[in-house]
């Protein structure tokens, strides 16, 4: 492990100051938010020595607000605040449920949504929900503002559409409609502080005949980035929902993923778990609707 000394830390108190430092220093500084990913990477020597831009005390980046047709979440908002927000629980429940599984309480208390997104682990639990909720990421620099849809933000394994003078300042998610249901599923090796072996977010829109008018499925930890399960989505849209169509659709997920072997599981295990998770998740969504008296 590396000793972590002899570097400079900038701790601006406002967004404006932070952006000015980023403009001036660019690649010479590394942004630190909650630090739950970065500090470990620095200790392991994965991170080249860089000066730090500590944004943790920029409170103006901590908020959850209702926008015109989206919910706006400040990049520094912690997963504890996201999990307990009434707005998010009511209108973007899938994200609240995912937030509740991120690490343990101590990690949720400090880990920020912005850090989860920019760290860009394929297993990051907030990303699949944000894919199905059509999230838009707001990137700011001294030059101006860019709004990037989440799917084009990720260009490959840890390859992101963000410049060195830009800060992620906000995440916008669409509000779920009355005729939509969703679920977040995570398979980890234990319940607390477990990185996902496979995770998934499902969002369905019902038509009048108890079929899916639209389905969105995103999975994590099974490819270099989070992926949409298009073959599976297609196999469900407009179809009658019975055990065989659901099993067939869930089985198709293997066409959409490209998992690898790692310390948490083999590629084969991940393929099997992906099918199982989707099968379980789809039935949960359907049963919930049936119980609700439809």
């Amino acid at each position: 492990m590396n000793r972590l000394h002899d570097i400079e830390v900038y701790s601006p108190k406002t967004l404006e100051e932070a952006l000015e430092i980023l403009r001036r220093e660019g690649d010479r500084v590394k942004v630190i938010a909650g630090g739950t990913d970065l500090i470990i990477q620095m200790k392991d020597g994965i991170m080249p020595r860089k000066n730090l831009l500590n944004i943790y005390s920029i409170d103006e980046l901590r908020y959850i607000r209702m926008g015109n047709d989206s919910i706006r979440i400040g990049a520094l908002t912690s997963f504890t605040d996201i999990a307990s927000s009434a707005l998010i629980r009511n209108y973007a429940r899938i994200l609240a449920d995912a937030a509740n599984t991120i690490g343990s309480i101590q990690i949720m208390n400090k880990a920020s949504i912005g850090g989860n997104l920019v760290n860009a682990s394929p297993a990051a639990d907030s990303i699949p929900p944000l894919y199905v909720l059509d999230a838009v990421l707001v990137l700011r620099s001294v030059e101006g503002v860019r709004e990037v849809p989440i799917q084009s933000f990720y260009r490959g394994y840890k390859k992101l559409d963000i410049r060195s003078d830009e800060l992620l300042t906000e995440v916008r998610v669409r509000r779920m409609a009355e005729d939509e249901d969703g679920i977040f599923l995570k398979h980890g090796l234990r319940l607390g502080d477990a990185i996902s072996v496979v995770n998934a977010a499902l969002l369905v829109k019902w038509d009048g005949d108890d079929r899916f008018k639209d389905v969105k499925i995103a999975l994590g930890a099974v490819a270099p980035t989070v992926v949409r399960a298009r073959s599976c989505e297609e196999a469900l849209t407009g179809k009658e929902l019975n055990d065989s169509t659901i099993w067939d659709a869930a089985s198709k997920v293997v066409n959409d993923i490209s998992p690898i072997d790692d310390v948490r599981g083999t590629a084969e295990y991940r393929r099997e778990m992906s099918v199982n998770l989707l099968y379980i998740g789809l039935w949960e969504i359907i049963n919930k609707r049936n119980q609700a008296g439809w």
């Binding site: 909650g34 630090g35 500090i39 005390s57 343990s104 400090k110």
Partner: peptide, 25 residues
């Protein structure tokens, strides 16, 4: 590494793992 929790303290009213936070933060 932020896993064992032995270093847990309360910071501004919330529990955090103090091995996973710089004093400057």
């Amino acid at each position: 590494t932020g896993n064992c929790g032995a270093c847990t303290v309360i910071m501004n009213g919330k529990s955090v793992k103090s091995c996973n936070i710089f004093a400057v933060q």
